[in-house]
Nucleic acid binder design. Sequence first.
RNA 1: CGGAGAGUAGCGCAGCCUGGCUAGCGCGCUUGGUUUGGGACCAAGAGGUCGCCGGUUCAAAUCCGGCCUCUCCGACCA
Length: 479
Amino acid sequence: MAEAITPRSQDYSQWYTDVILRAEVADYAPVRGCMVLRPYGFALWENIQQGLDKRFKATGHQNAYFPLFIPQSFLQKEAEHIEGFAPELAVVTHGGGEKLEEPLIVRPTSEAIIGYHYSKWIKSYRDLPVLINQWCSVVRWEMRTRMFLRTTEFLWQEGHTAHATFEEAEAETRQMLDVYDDFAAKEAALPVLKGRKSDSERFPGAMTTYTIESMMGDKRALQSATSHNLGQNFAKAFEIQYLDRQNELQHCWTTSWGMSWRIQGAILMAHGDDQGLVLPPRLAPIQAVIVPIYKEEVDRTPVLEAARRLKKSFEGSIRIHLDDREEHTAGWKFNEWEMRGVPVRIEVGPKDVAKNQVVLGRRDMPGKEGKKFVSQDGLTAAVQALLDEIQTNLYNKALKFREDNTREPKNYDEFKEAVAESFARAWWCGNAECEAKIKEETKATNRCIPLDQETSKSGGMCIYCGKAAKEKAIFGRAY
RNA sequence: CGGAGAGUAGCGCAGCCUGGCUAGCGCGCUUGGUUUGGGACCAAGAGGUCGCCGGUUCAAAUCCGGCCUCUCCGACCA
């Protein structure tokens, strides 16, 4: 009997850690807060990268690469930026056995170094817009770490763009938020709330920060990507300027936007169950696994031949794996691949070979309920259809879960109750003090001010102070 | 960084209080055989700087000090 995964109801955190380690997604590294992404986890990351990258290209962006080290002085050019990041910087003071003249920062994000280069590259309105993305890792010295959600070093992509006008920059910021939303919904099967961050939750140096927020299996919120309109703050700090048509010098308007491997944590926590991972078909490293079953030696060859033939028929259209290991029984393999989140299992036994059929099992429906007999003719199309169905089902399940766990409290007492075990959508006056008090008294933070406000005529009263409020915000406990 | 817990074979743990000579157990691993429609069984094996450094002692997994890492709760945080 293999070691069991801690049930989610017993200890959600432990479940999360168990699943990651046992499914061989990632492992701890010897350095505090650092993590090894194992092949299975990296394959998932590669699929995430592809899903995002093709969307970035489709919206006109190009990839580039900027260096890991940033001169300390660069970071200090934007006051709010340095203040925001100072406590979590890794600083290199020595190189080649010598003390460095100027310490180097290991990038916590690349606005500074990219801003420096943009100021060199951009001279004219004809050079705009500049639309660049980079895939890299960054380092932020975290006090308290957690696999994928908050690690010292993490993989991500950061887009950095420069524009001639505020309107263009704002449109870019919102466009990329939509790209993240689309990716989350279609690829990761994650329903997200699109919204604006309050001032206290804003990116250091940004004018406006937009976010997508998702709900995890324990009803806590996870910021899953952000898109920032940086205004002219960085353009002024780094002198990113261009000559407009009237031959007048103007500062650019810049944006930045990022999604990190934290999204993998979101996928694990939003879809997983007590058996382990449940991966959305579009991102799953293995979309379907074939498990051959044979009792008598005489059945072995025909079953394996059928399994190999099926595998071949899937190649090129579905990410398929044939588990023909001799050392494990079929039942053991069922459990193993369920734990690792493979969406579809294809069982082939002697009876199936005789009847030209297979048994399809779906990961999102455990047990007999999710099993059915399917003819081997046209199996590829049947599996493809099943994968699509699972993808949709996962999204709908997650959406229903979030909606079932989002409340609209009428007063602060109801709010306190709501926020202890769900999201709460409530009027908020915009005052940072109310936010801070709410956090202090309930541990819930202002996740975002949703963009899809039903612009109801008059507004309402702030859930905390009772003063006039124009917008509703989502509050919840967050990672 | 504060409070609490943990670190002994790949994994999970016992042993520590009350120091003692070859450090155990379950799972996994290796070999051979029987097995395979929801985590098979038998037999024989391999595998350990007891997290690291130092101290006490004739003798340390065990007692003392320091450090590292992980987990949980706080503070802090894109």
